[in-house]
Nucleic acid binder design. Structure first.
Length: 403
DNA sequence: TCTGGGGTCCTAGGACCC
DNA sequence: TCTGGGGTCCTAGGACCC
């Protein structure tokens, strides 16, 4: 294999659905077009998606419902409970359509995908982006924006520009250096992919305010005072691609389920049954991936918005690893017994499974009773089959919370 | 009264060993 | 008035993303 000194230039297209959840609601209810639409989180707690009209009224991402509820009457805001099954379904259709535009596709989140565009012999990238927009809108009814650039970080920036500047008509390429400089000097560092509030504060204090400042920052200072991740971001802003396209999805390293409750929960028994229900679902997801777990963590806490906030967690390891739900839930009960404090009103709890390995690569037989193990596997297979093919939550173990 | 859920990755610091 | 030094492993917590 020849040594490649300077690999050929990469070209990334980032396709991102506009106001995804709100747009999905418009697909199934076209009368919502042009109206301020907000999609709410679990328990209708806060805003998780807003149409442009709702954004214009000042409703913020994550803002609690009670703070802007008055806008329903005053401005005709339409607030909808989230319908995640619908969003998942439409997401799959968008991704299928995008897959036709490049064989190299990374589904990055429910509403966005990176496409590798350097191998397709495309002459006019902006035209290609417009074709993507038209086709996704025709196939799914969803509006998307397209950003094109030589690194992932720059393609995020291009996408942001396409979304916020109507004159781009939803497609922006930063493949030309002049475009790139102009966009970067107009935006604060906090708009960069990978720079959150904390890092933005540190950078701004150092006088690095715009994205262009960050692009031109001193490498040694960044490495010393920030992290390797931030240095990689700086390189990406310079057009040096450091983050590749991951077109084969990696298996999950952790599977967690947690909820904020609609009311405070006081009794240990009630928390136990809820978290055991979460554990059962998490274990089912894990088994669907063909994995077994060596680590389980449980956490529970009161509302962080009230005085005397209390939160605690505990964990156990499994050696050998397991995927047997009753074994997992008995660990959950043990941990909850240790971290639970009577007299508190719990508002949130959850479970995380991790340290997985693939079922087939683990020599369980060395340590456990093989026959018992086979019986457990058969039981779990039957439970999972009933829950996926017959009805969700059709079968559950005693003590599990089941809706 | 009412404030989401599911992830990844990095780093600092302690325990332990030689 | 002084208390080694360095490597590795593990974990908790923080920062970030959508």
């Amino acid at each position: 294999m020849p040594f490649v000194l300077s690999p050929s230039r990469k070209i990334f297209g980032l396709v991102d659905c506009n106001n995804f959840f709100a747009s999905c609601e418009r697909v199934i209810n076209p009368s919502l077009a042009g109206k301020p639409v907000v999609v709410l989180s679990n328990n209708d707690g806060c805003a998780v998606a807003r149409s442009n009209e709702a954004k214009a009224l000042g409703i913020k991402m994550g803002q609690p419902f009670f703070q802007w509820r008055h806008l329903l009457k005053e401005k005709g805001v339409i607030a909808l409970s989230a319908n995640f099954a619908l969003y998942g379904d439409l997401s799959r259709r968008v991704m299928e359509t995008l897959g036709r535009f490049s064989p190299d596709q990374e589904v990055y989140s429910i509403d966005e995908a990176f496409l590798g565009l350097e191998t397709l012999g495309i002459k006019a990238f902006v035209e290609y982006g417009r074709d993507i927009r038209r086709t996704v809108l025709k196939d799914t009814g969803l509006p998307v924006s397209v950003g094109i650039a030589s690194t992932k970080t720059l393609s995020k920036l291009a996408n942001h520009t396409a979304k916020t500047h109507p004159e781009y008509q939803g497609v922006c390429s930063l493949l030309e250096e002049q475009n790139s400089q102009r966009v970067m000097q107009e935006l604060p560092v906090s708009e960069v992919w990978g720079i959150g509030g904390q890092k933005a504060r540190v950078l701004t204090a150092r006088g690095i305010r715009t994205i262009l400042d960050l692009r031109n920052a001193d490498d040694r200072w960044i490495r010393k005072n920030m992290s390797v991740v931030t240095l990689r971001t700086v390189f990406e802003l310079r057009g040096i691609s450091c983050i590749g396209l991951e077109d084969i999805p990696a298996p999950r390293q952790t599977i967690g389920i947690s909820r904020t409750f609609p009311r405070d929960i006081h009794s240990l028994e009630e928390i136990e049954s809820i978290v055991c229900g979460f554990t059962s679902h998490a274990a089912q997801k894990m088994r669907a991936q063909g994995q077994i777990t060596g680590f389980l963590q449980v956490f529970a806490g009161t509302s962080p918005f009230k005085p005397d906030y209390y939160a605690n967690s505990g964990s156990v390891r499994f050696d050998p690893r397991t995927d047997y739900t009753p074994g997992l839930t008995s660990a959950v009960r043990q941990i909850l017994g240790e971290i639970y404090q009577p007299g508190r009103g719990y508002k949130r709890a959850g479970v995380v499974l991790g340290d997985f390995s693939t079922r087939t690569e683990t020599p369980l037989e060395l340590f456990v009773d093989t026959q018992a193990r086979e019986r457990q596997e058969k039981l779990m297979a039957v439970v999972d089959q009933l829950n996926t093919k017959v009805a969700k939550g059709a079968v559950f173990f005693a003590g599990e919370y089941n809706r």
